[in-house]
Computed example of a mutant assay.
Amino acid sequence: MVKNKPGKNKKLSILFVTTNLNYNGAKKYIVEVANELATRGCRVGLLYDSGPLAKKLVKEVRQYHIDLKGLGLDSVSRWRLVIKAATLARNEDYTIIHSESANSFISHKLLSFLSRAKIVETIHHVWNSDQERRKAAAKISGRADKIITISTSALKVLASFGLKKRKIVVIQNGINTKEYEKINKNEVEVLRKNLGVSKKDRVIVSVSRVSKAKNFEAFVNWFPYILSSFPSAKLVIVGDNGSGDRGYLDGLIKKIRSLNLHKNIICVGGKTFVKNYLGLAEIYTVTTVARGLAVLEAMSSGLPVVARKPLMPVKIETTINGKTGLVFGKGDYKNWAGHIKYLLSNPTVARKMGAEGRKRASEFFTVQKHVDQLEKLYQRLKT
């Protein structure tokens, strides 16, 4: 991370608010951004319940805890979060409150009134139908001073359904790409041994929230098609559903065993540090559109990406079909399996795509570039 000159941002104070720091992209986003801002000299606080990603926070980030007792996003939790966040903002003099939830677990208007802070929200979600987009645009419009979206295309879509453009700012996602450029080969070999993966195995990895909406059953159903050409192929699935409930993941593992695929499809659950899992693989894949932080981690690791085409007209700024990876249509998992087989059959092409992806990530999707723009936004809101 790049440090600014001491004292440059001493008057910029931001409180991030979220329910937990469990394994998912939105929570990773908070950790990445909070760390970078704190390292630059900003005063940064983070209010949350609990979660394993807290291990990645730098010591400069002030941590505040609220016990939600597993209540999730019900009305009681919302009130408690509002009161706690507003109290912290006023007592600790935070001038910006930044939320990452697309579901608006905080009543932003009330929070703004009680805290006297400016409210910023980052939208990670992209809705799948016009009805969902229209409802989302109406709901989002009145709840924050500024809305951050991660793509120009997403801005246009939301604006077309009533969200005022003046409230939206586009800031591309970003991660600490340098963290993924080098791997510890000894650590990767230990991991390989622990997973029962040999050096001759052809490894595909998926780092994602593992939930019903992600439809991992389709990968399981079509993996035998890949095995028919590559018997040593292994699919390593890294992730859980982000809430601590293992119901879906356990069901997926049961299905894998029932199909006698447990030696070829390995579910490892959620992990705080995923770099070594990416270091095992030749290909990264995901059941959804390639737009999250995990995709950037894979690209920074030099892996080609195989992901789904978007359901709406949103340009994928991360994965470029045929250059940094390959895309398949909704429900077309035969095409997905075909893409995987093609890249396994053409490792030179796969490595070239991976190299292009790494170059693109380091050029456009660093956390430093993201926070450069974020700081400017915060400063404008202060004045």
Score class of each variant (00 low, 15 high):
220 V>D: 01
193 K>Q: 14
173 N>Y: 14
161 F>Y: 14
304 P>L: 14
293 L>H: 06
275 K>G: 07
45 G>A: 05
299 M>H: 13
222 W>A: 05
290 A>D: 15
51 G>D: 08
282 E>C: 01
364 F>P: 01
356 E>V: 00
314 V>E: 03
14 I>W: 04
299 M>Y: 08
110 L>A: 05
251 G>S: 04
2 V>P: 02
152 T>V: 07
119 I>R: 04
373 Q>K: 15
246 R>F: 01
113 F>M: 05
94 Y>A: 01
270 G>S: 10
3 K>Y: 14
217 E>K: 02
296 L>I: 12
321 N>D: 14
131 Q>V: 01
217 E>G: 03
72 G>Q: 07
59 K>W: 12
308 R>S: 12
75 S>N: 13
168 I>D: 06
225 Y>M: 02
114 L>V: 07
208 S>Y: 07
32 E>R: 06
258 S>F: 11
122 T>F: 03
46 L>C: 04
355 A>T: 09
205 V>P: 00
364 F>V: 08
238 V>W: 09
102 A>N: 06
241 N>L: 05
234 K>R: 15
111 L>H: 09
12 L>I: 12
281 A>C: 10
374 L>S: 11
205 V>L: 10
174 G>A: 02
204 I>D: 00
85 A>G: 04
318 T>G: 03
344 L>P: 02
214 K>L: 05
191 L>W: 09
142 G>E: 07
152 T>P: 02
287 T>A: 12
41 G>S: 03
68 L>R: 03
280 L>W: 01
295 V>F: 03
152 T>W: 14
22 N>H: 15
161 F>W: 10
96 I>N: 04
19 T>W: 10
76 V>Y: 13
221 N>T: 13
88 L>Q: 07
110 L>C: 10
182 K>P: 02
316 I>W: 04
36 E>H: 10
16 F>W: 15
344 L>V: 11
356 E>A: 02
111 L>Y: 13
78 R>V: 09
180 Y>F: 15
239 G>Q: 11
112 S>M: 08
341 K>C: 05
213 A>F: 12
49 D>I: 03
141 S>L: 13
78 R>A: 10
94 Y>N: 07
318 T>D: 02
311 L>E: 06
111 L>R: 10
11 K>W: 14
10 K>F: 12
58 V>Y: 13
159 A>L: 02
95 T>F: 12
131 Q>P: 00
238 V>N: 01
127 W>G: 00
347 P>N: 07
69 K>F: 09
270 G>H: 06
18 T>D: 10
383 T>W: 05
3 K>H: 11
31 V>K: 06
187 E>Q: 10
73 L>I: 01
257 R>M: 06
242 G>T: 13
132 E>Q: 13
94 Y>V: 02
191 L>Y: 08
81 L>E: 01
65 H>R: 12
299 M>C: 06
12 L>C: 03
163 L>S: 00
161 F>I: 00
284 Y>G: 03
148 I>Q: 09
125 H>V: 04
302 G>A: 09
110 L>H: 11
151 S>F: 04
85 A>W: 05
64 Y>E: 06
131 Q>E: 15
58 V>C: 12
35 N>P: 07
212 K>F: 12
